[in-house]
Write a protein that binds this DNA or RNA. Structure first.
Lengths: 156, 156
DNA sequence: GTTTTTAATGAAAATGATTTTCATTTGCTC
DNA sequence: GAGCAAATGAAAATCATTTTCATTAAAAAC
């Protein structure tokens, strides 16, 4: 189960601080994202939330996910299958930063955290240099590798 | 103008080799992509092609762009504005590999080639390691930085 | 605790990029 | 130049996402 002796969820402050309300739908959506390590689409989130709160509509899912992205609590990805995917940016414990391997045949997505340290270091150097050169305030980055996964490679 | 003494366009072989036909529409589309350094949407390409060949439909644009992506001649990007963007993967001379800076406020996209060398080197090491570990045949990668461009940063 | 204020929500309709269908056209092989 | 499958255009269909608007419910004010 969840941790013991918990106060209000960690993200309440982020909402209150900006004047956003804490609602049943928002709690439920964050809860779903918090419980999974998958790359959920808006509909995935909707279905999961719907099991517990059948009265929460898909529109609210979209609106809330968008808000969470704006707040930086959630990352939005495009893996090329025509629907956006969402992942919590941070968990209470702080999930390890990861990047993605996307199979261009079957669409499978593999997370990896290996080699991240080197990447992060280079990225941070690059970010600084880019920020300076283009006067661009970098807040985030996206790194994805594309190719054929084990299965699809074999079948070709 | 274009180079002198040119034979058949460089990409004809890529088509013929795989049994694809060389058509007016395809030539026009590749020509448009070849002439620009912008990140064109399908509609952008359509409008440009339409000026010269008003009989080429949007459907063909989509179909051809998709084919070009499959052939690896064109890269498809998502900058978050709800429409895909296309760029020629290589020019006759071999355009410098570049990555993107995307402004999350105004949507502006800046290409950069600086610092690419370091990145490429790290990427190539990472790709090898990932390929081995996950048995994943990497064919391509995507790197984008997000943040606020000069203008938008100032206005905030 | 009750009232008040206004953000948040749900349902339905709208949007808009992309895809599919299908009859017609056109490269390319022989 | 004929034959044939690939390619095409126009129109319709798809489908994820957004907008509209009347209703509900957080949270502030009392």
């Amino acid at each position: 189960m969840m941790g013991k002796h918990m106060g209000p969820p960690w993200w309440h402050g982020r909402f209150r601080g900006r004047g956003y309300r804490i609602t049943v739908a928002r709690e439920a959506i964050l809860d779903v994202l918090n419980r999974t390590s998958e790359h959920l689409s808006a509909e995935d989130v909707y279905l999961a939330v719907h099991k517990v709160h059948p009265n929460v509509g898909l529109t609210t899912i979209y609106r809330t996910l968008e808000l969470l992205v704006q707040l930086g609590l959630v990352f939005k990805f495009d893996f090329g299958d025509g629907r956006a995917r969402y992942e919590l940016a941070e968990t209470p414990k702080g999930t390890r930063h990861h990047h993605h391997l996307v199979c261009t045949v079957c669409g499978r997505v593999i997370d990896y955290t290996d080699f991240i340290d080197d990447e992060i270091e280079l990225l941070s150097r690059t970010e600084q240099a880019l920020s300076k050169k283009f006067n661009f305030k970098i807040t985030n980055h996206l790194i994805q590798f594309y190719g054929l996964c084990n299965e699809c490679h074999r079948k070709q």
